[in-house]
Design a protein around this nucleic acid. Structure first.
Lengths: 337, 337
DNA sequence: CTGTTAGCGCTTTCAC
DNA sequence: GTGAAAGCGCTAACAG
């Protein structure tokens, strides 16, 4: 059975004073005689008194808790983001209440409700991919609970957010491929309807434009393509592809597979750059060049924005488009190449 | 500003009844006239009334919250375990309060305290590697808060736990290597003082014994060895190594590196089996054989044990040594080989 | 300096 | 069937 914790009243009774006096002694607030204060502190320590945050929450209408809605845990990106969030919130003395959405809107709505019911002081959310309705977000905001979006945002939601600069990230990758001499650069796009998919594609286009390379439709594939492997094979066989930039690291590995099959050496004949800097990138052979999105920093920034908003609801809209880092590894020729 | 939520008293006042009546109507408990009940339910719905769990917690001395102490988030193993835990707890209507220990005992102690202060109904913990003191765990158990250990346990702590059967997992891997004809099987051990390191090594030994293969000291390496790569190189060069079983998948990749350097083809000349089934295993070339520990199931079992213990503190000690699954991929010769 | 009182939101006797 | 009252643990305003 859960043992009854010792309360402020227990101490008060033992010492023949009132709870208020004990409260004052413990919180240093009002005036208490040195003698009583010491007695109280001593007894509290002896009995292992720990204040009950539940009671305080009820009184103060705040819980020192932050709610987190995240699609899932298993992608390295989210793990790192979570670590960044946790490092900031735990430092600030906040607890983290975590819900997953599984990229499922219904579950996201439920999670939002759950967190609001729990009276969290603020919510950090990565909204799910398939969101087309935002009533639950709107309801969340109407409730007055501060909200900060991380990793994904929507123009329909006016609240602080931290995202990664996908355009620049993609641009830097494709720019690099052009610099090392690639002229037929394959791009595998991400899932439809995702701003990241769109922005990375824009970065790709812009880099080609900068280098006066014509965009060729036949060099564009989509991650959702049926028989993606076959399409990559066709592409590599027929279009003298010498570079590839993919929406994710995992898509880059698909290219690795086909290239290995076709005996196309990487990076000698084909330079490849992925996206996300999954840890696997450094273990695969050749090691994969990729774009690092600094997920830890993203989480940390998001958490800080949220704390700011909690402490000052009238704060100006804080928005961050986080810089990416291009990480060149064995899958690309060198700049002199 | 956080908007004031509507309370049971608000409804009571609006309808000229008392809070008790509203409470009864809402909870279906006592007797309330059909008419009043309907009125109350209607108004509650209209105003968007949501019960305040904080008040309930204070009253009932339970929070519907489970605390989790986990070393870190970024290993795939823990992500999956977390997913397993979350699936069970969210299904049961419990919230998850998450703390990390970073394998640091001081932080683990602090996290324990934090969770107890938060009055969680139970704690799920993966105790940190370097634990030599268990006072904080003892204190936790003395408090009457149910505790379940996952992934790691200690004989000094008498509480339910779920771990993975490292001995059998290792045994099955090395047994397989023997079956396909390996006779000089390299083993890279994990960190010192870890029961998993010990048990996997025992499994390795037992499999060799079963196949009447002599254990050779020169085929044993440790992950902490300085110049591990060099030692692997020496081993592969001088001892006709035809099989390798490593404490982790990542250590297996170190063997890949050296083998590739020395032009030793995998699996033709060297069969390799790792441990943990990191997702990267299926992307690396050749795909890595490995031992899957079923982390999702581990988390789910642990969460269920905890819920059982919360609901019935007198329950018998539940203990599970979870089966592993040997996953054979491209890094091993076939059984006929 | 310290005690009294009231109340955060809710449930649960106990009366009527 | 419904209201009044007490209390979960704590704080704060107000007396004294």
């Amino acid at each position: 059975m859960k043992k009854k914790r010792i309360s402020i009243t227990d101490i008060a009774n033992a010492l023949n004073v009132t709870p208020s006096t004990v409260s004052r002694a413990l919180n240093g607030g009002g005036k208490v005689s040195e003698k009583k204060r010491n007695e109280i502190l001593a007894l509290a320590k002896e009995l292992g008194y720990r204040p009950n945050p539940i009671a305080k929450s009820l009184l103060e209408n705040r819980t020192n808790t932050i709610g987190l809605i995240i699609p899932e845990f298993t992608h390295h990106f989210y793990s790192r983001m979570l670590a960044g969030i946790e490092s900031v919130t735990s430092e600030a003395g906040y607890q983290l209440l975590i819900c997953t959405s599984n990229e499922n809107q219904a579950q996201e709505i439920k999670s939002t409700q759950t967190l609001l019911d729990a009276r969290v002081d603020g919510i950090l959310a990565t909204i799910s991919k398939m969101n087309d309705k935002f009533e639950h977000i709107q309801e969340e905001m109407d409730s007055g609970t501060p909200l900060v979006l991380v990793d994904r945002f929507s123009e329909e939601i006016e609240t602080p957010y931290v995202i990664s600069d996908d355009f620049k990230g993609a641009f830097s990758a494709v720019d690099y491929l052009c610099e090392i001499g690639c002229r037929n650069i394959l791009h595998i796009k991400g899932p439809d309807n995702l701003s990241t998919t769109f922005n990375r594609f824009m970065g790709y286009k812009e880099a080609l434009r900068k280098h006066e390379i014509e965009l060729k439709e036949e060099l564009l594939l989509e991650s959702s393509d049926t028989n993606l492997l076959e399409k990559i094979r066709f592409c590599l066989t027929n279009h003298q592809v010498d570079g590839a930039f993919t929406y994710s690291d995992y898509l880059a590995f698909e290219i690795y597979k086909v290239a290995s099959e076709l005996n196309i050496p990487i990076p000698e004949q084909l330079s490849v750059i992925g996206y996300a800097d999954e840890p696997i990138s450094t273990y695969i052979n050749p090691t994969l060049s990729t774009v690092n999105q600094q997920p830890f920093e993203m989480g940390a920034f998001g958490a800080n924005y949220l704390l700011n908003k909690i402490n000052n609801p009238e704060i100006a809209l804080e928005i961050k488009n986080l810089e990416t880092r291009l990480v060149i590894r064995g899958s690309c020729k060198g700049l002199e190449g």
